[in-house]
């Protein structure tokens, strides 16, 4: 399982890459592995507001549906549109090509509440028990 150490994580298995006043959001390698082959993804539109901890989209495998939760509050400024035609990208490359949205966040404070790589690894291990 791949856990890049330059990313921040959530307990709902999203990752964030912080770029200035934006974060890039996707789901982790662990999450895609748990879901299995992803067949469909539903993402918001540019300009939509998102709220920390609230669902902004859905990923589906053939037998499961999983909501994706926003790690921060703010506004969607970019969406990875090619994913809708090639949802398998999320399985193949969850941290790069498989990114989902970019959010311009409203408060840097929320970033502090995110998990760092060690905390996330530990969380995943605990969850497996």
């Amino acid at each position: 399982m791949n856990f890049p150490d330059d990313l921040k994580y959530t307990k709902e298995h999203e990752w964030c890459r912080i770029k200035g006043n934006r974060v890039v959001v996707g789901i982790t390698d662990h999450a895609q592995n748990q879901l299995g082959d992803i067949v469909y993804v539903e993402l918001p539109e540019v300009g939509d507001p998102v709220k920390k901890g609230e669902s902004f989209g859905v990923v589906e495998s053939t037998k499961a549906v999983s909501e994706i939760f926003s790690p921060v509050s703010g506004k969607v400024v970019e969406v990875n549109d090619p994913l809708s035609d090639a949802p398998e990208t999320i399985n193949e490359d969850p941290y790069e090509e498989g990114w989902m949205i970019q959010v311009e966040f409203s408060s840097g404070k929320e970033l502090e509440e995110l998990l760092d790589v060690d905390a996330y690894k530990k969380f995943v291990e605990e969850e497996a028990e």
Binding site: S61, T62, V65
Partner: peptide, 14 residues
Amino acid sequence: LTLSTREQHIRRER
């Protein structure tokens, strides 16, 4: 059978 994630046995109340 396909696109089953729309259906009650997977999505339940949604």
